[in-house]
């Protein structure tokens, strides 16, 4: 058994694709139309055969409640690893990204949390 996919629920797939590629720097891997929504995944440019992140459309009402509860509490839906968190933080701030937590040391890890503009808090971390 292998982990090949993980997902974030997004309020708008087109807006999410723009943010996750143009701002975060991921690369679109798959886009398959499926009626109202699409199967849409992105990958890290450094690991294009690695785990795919599904930009999952918001099509289930209880998921909206769950997403909002996490968002309001500032809890990240998922986390991405970075090599230099301060550099990435500065770059994203320059792109207008809003952070709820600036880079903070937690033992061997430094973390920060930003708003993905699609209903989620996302954590970045450097080990």
């Amino acid at each position: 058994m292998k982990i090949k996919l993980t997902s974030v629920i997004v309020t708008d797939q087109e807006k999410a694709l723009k943010f996750y590629t143009e701002v975060l720097g991921f690369v679109k891997k798959t886009e398959i139309p499926m009626g109202e929504h699409k199967w849409l995944t992105v990958v890290s440019p450094e690991e294009q055969s690695g785990v795919e992140l599904v930009l999952e459309p918001m099509g289930f009402q209880p998921a909206r409640v769950y997403q909002k509860a996490l968002y309001d509490a500032g809890i990240p839906l998922t986390a991405f690893a970075v090599d230099d968190i301060q550099k990435e933080y500065d770059r994203l701030i320059g792109c207008g990204v809003a952070f709820s937590i600036k880079p903070t040391n937690m033992g061997a890890v430094t973390l920060a949390v930003f708003d993905d503009t699609c209903g989620n808090n996302i954590q970045i971390f450097q080990v």
Binding site: D72, S100, I101, T104, N105, G107, N121
Partner: peptide, 29 residues
């Protein structure tokens, strides 16, 4: 802006478990 619930938890854990950044840095070294 007031810290979120998650931010409060992060600060609480940091204060209780990893209060000294310099010591942590030395272990990382």
């Amino acid at each position: 802006m007031a810290p979120t619930f998650y931010h409060q938890q992060v600060l609480k854990i940091k204060g209780n478990v990893f209060p000294n950044d310099d010591l942590c840095r030395q272990v990382m070294q």
